[in-house]
Structure formats: C-alpha cells, structure tokens
Amino acid sequence: MSAYEAHFRVWRGDQDGGGLKDFHVEVNDGEVVLDIVHRLQATQAPDLAVRWNCKAGKCGSCSAEVNGRPRLLCMTRMSVFERNETITITPLRAFPVVRDLVTDVSFNYTKAREVPSFVPRRGSVRANTGCGRRTWGGRRSSASASSASCARTPAMWCGTSRRTRRRSPGRGS
C-alpha cells in the first residue's frame, strides 16, 4: 500500500449557514479520518474548526458525521473507504452547530450534572475499593443493615446501588 490523494467534502460554516467545500488530501497507510482532517488544517484550511482530544475513541470530542452517519473521526479508518470514494464530513445533526465540524454539546454537560455523584456509605470499611462490596453475595455488615435489593446489586454499579439504598426503608444510618 502507498500514499494516495483522497477527495473530501467538508462542511464549513456556522449557525447562519454554510456548505460543503471540496478538498484533495494526502492519505498514508494506517491513518484515520482525524489524521486527514488535521493534515487538511495544516496544509489547506488553518481555521477549520474541529474538536478533538484523546485520539483513542474514549472522549467523544471528535464526533461528526462521515458520509451521513455519526462517527468518531479518530476511530474511523481510512482503509474502510475505496480510494476513489468521496468522503463527506459534516457536523453532528443532533447538536446545534458552532462552527465547521464543532457543535454545541452543552446538553451533555447538563445531563451529566443530573447524574448523582457517588458518595461512599458512612462507615464503609471498603468504601475506597468499590461500593457495596460488603453486601455482595448476601454478606451483611454489622455496621449498617443493607436492603436486600442492594445485596443483589453488582458492586460496580455505584450510581444504581446508591439510589436503591437511598429509597430503601429501614436502613441504618
């Protein structure tokens, strides 16, 4: 395999409107779409707005639509496309556009704030190693009587078990 030139159409604009712009960019072995967008920035469109962080498919920052489907730019390999295929990159339709490929994802942060944070149970000996460990498998702690529903809850689901405990009556404090 060798380097080749790929045809890209990238949406450029802001909340007032915009359109697809054509680019021809070099592609090398093993590259992902985000690599190409970065090359595009470095060589042809220095002010092309794209958000990215981890380059490893963990953070979700580089979410955009590739050929109309939501994708992570960092996890979409160039090898899945034909060399003569035109690749279209547009911002996610689910969020309002800020500029180019960048969307306003503040909704996610609002939702994240609604998720209650994990608070270790008072007096829990193993609070730092995982929640509800003592009650797993039916073992009861002497310090606080746990609800039966919590005992059946796997230890890893901190948010779930905490909410269950909060609602359960007769819990020792």
């Binding site: 802001d14 920035q41 220095p46 002010d47 092309l48 707005a49 794209v50 800020v98 500029r99 180019d100 960048v102």
Partner: peptide, 12 residues
C-alpha cells in the same frame, strides 16, 4: 499568520 476570524479558530 492565520486566516479567518476569532471564533473557534484552531490555527489562531
């Protein structure tokens, strides 16, 4: 040097 304006401009 950079092109464009100040809104979300990675080159800048």
């Amino acid at each position: 040097g950079v092109e464009g304006h100040r809104q979300f401009n990675p080159g800048w």
